[in-house]
Write a protein that binds this DNA or RNA. Structure first.
Lengths: 167, 167
DNA sequence: CTTCTTGCAAAATATTTGCAACGAG
DNA sequence: CTCGTTGCAAATATTTTGCAAGAAG
């Protein structure tokens, strides 16, 4: 299956990235990356910790945070910015985009919209040197649409523009 | 100046939005929105609290969080998602995009890149109903570029902070 | 009155740091 | 031995909640 293949590929990538950066491939790093690569819901560090500890019983929350930071640094994992006040992670480091449900916080890969290439060639704007970008869409998932008591959205999810009766 | 005009406009907008939503225009709401509209660095709730308390001495941190939530809900303020694990806010609710410095966390409005209109007409993808989107660029600001031995920055590394103390 | 907001205290959530022990070169 | 990694405990940082007092209509 694809996920198996993806997972295998990620493990290879981890080995390679660790070698390049002079870092050991520890069981913790393997387990965390494997858990992340095995799901598509872009978990937070804590959610990942809850899953990884099933495999590696002794692992500590601190290690999960630290390993994720390392994996991001060596380019094997990407951190996803959302309007929620916590970091979420993705083992797919290719540039792709996400949609966040304002109702339940579900974060999905966005496929089916070709937004082309936004990266400016100059990559140099407003004094910044730009390295990357991502597009974040906000909306409501099917479930939350169905039960749309939109007026009482959870506070944690951002109610960005839902009732925008400007003018 | 423009900021004065913008601030005045925002206060009018607040009054209007509160009226529409049946909410009172409290001194706290005014002070918080005024403080936010008066700066362009997209502060977090805590940073805003530190500033607002200079004007409204008795205000509590809780109120700042709650008022910001309200202002977002009624469409007067937008919440900005970054890879940092905290929410940041913007009094400019028009769709525009931001660039986050991976070095120092500086968040700036991005001007000079015309991104065009990404919003799909259908606004219905992958089971989601899309309401909005934003583009987030990541890079390094001029200061961090200058002080950086970041020549070996991984192309896609999106760590919040470059480990500058890691030498 | 009724409704909403505010402040305070505390809880809940999210993340980071200091430090000693461990483990692979 | 030396270095980086891990686990544990504690410290921070961020955000939310329960509750009573107060203000506005």
């Amino acid at each position: 299956m694809k996920s198996d293949h993806f997972g295998y590929h990620k493990m290879q990538e981890l080995t390679k990235a660790c070698r390049i950066n002079g870092l050991p491939v520890t069981p913790q790093r393997q387990a965390i990356l494997e858990a992340l690569a095995g799901r598509s819901d872009h978990p937070s560090a804590d959610e990942l910790f809850d899953e990884v500890r099933k495999q590696l019983k002794g692992i500590s929350r601190t290690t999960v945070y630290r390993v994720l930071e390392t994996l991001v640094r060596i380019g094997v994992v990407q951190r996803i910015g959302t309007e929620e006040a916590r970091a979420r992670f993705d083992a797919d480091t290719r540039r792709h985009h996400h949609i966040l449900c304002m109702g339940c916080g579900k974060l999905s890969d966005l496929k089916g919209i070709d937004i082309g290439e936004l990266m400016p060639d100059s990559a140099e704007v407003a004094g910044f040197r730009i390295f990357n970008y991502s597009v974040q869409f906000t909306g409501l998932c099917a479930e939350c649409l169905a039960s749309a008591e939109v007026s009482s959205l959870p506070a944690r999810a951002t109610t960005t523009l839902i009732d925008k009766e400007k003018e």
